[in-house]
Amino acid sequence: MNPQTIREGYNFAYLDEQTKRMIRRALLKAVAIPGYQVPFGGREMPMPYGWGTGGMQVTAAVIGENDCLKVIDQGADDTTNAVSIRAFFRDLTGVRTTEKTEEATLIQTRHRIPEKPLQAGQVLVYQVPIPEPLRFIEPSEVETRKMHALEDYGVMHIKLYEDIAQFGHIATAYAYPVLVNGRYVMDPSPIPKFDNPKMDNSPALQLFGAGREKRIYAIPPYTDVKSLDFEDHPFEVQRWEQCCAICGSDESFLDEVIMDDQGAHEFICSDTDYCRERMANLEVTA
């Protein structure tokens, strides 16, 4: 890769080398203690908090010249957020970018895990808004850190209990809490619970960056990730009665799309790359 392709006046991947080192040290610690939230000195990025500054800093710290980057937003490669972050890193690193899951070595994601199973050697970077799974019940950071340290996790099931008491089933549909490596309870960022099983024993390395809260955590490859549940209300993923209106898939995560102002709506795959590839295959066999 030719370093001249980087925009002039900027360091490779925007952050300076010392910052990247600092983030890498936090990442190493996070990988060593799966699910544990490591504080790091989050930097200002050239966009607002909540747009993925945490994920971008992690990506900037681990990206190398030989990487191939894919960025998705709610599964889609072509939304504003995904396009902008991809353009940002193409501009400031010159690395190859792709929309194909299997080609990418580094995938930055907002709120989805690709449908296609990840492989060993791939790195998945999540953008995380609120890293603390206990925050909903305990506003004090001092107290939540103590609760993690003492494995005082009884309150996590309260949330699920309240769901069942109110709705008759566990209604939490995203940011569904998981137990990582039998030790730390972790918020898997707002991915739908549909994606939770994909985190379990994944061959890929999963890194989580929260920019505003300045926390990094990780799931190393082949780590046990268990979704919390009750014996008589076991963990279940969402199911749809419809198939994707474009590719006809009946096993992917579907988004509901409003088609006109008459209330017509369709369901389509949220993972655009998965949908496109299925269409291409259908055309070949037809």
Partner: peptide
């Protein structure tokens, strides 16, 4: 815990000590 229901308040300690059966908690 003022933010959660009475049932959850009673059940919290049981959940903290490992009870994982909703029917029994209830």
């Amino acid at each position: 815990r003022m933010g959660v229901s009475a049932g959850a308040n009673i059940g919290e300690r049981l959940m903290a000590t490992g009870e994982r059966h909703y029917g029994n908690l209830r």
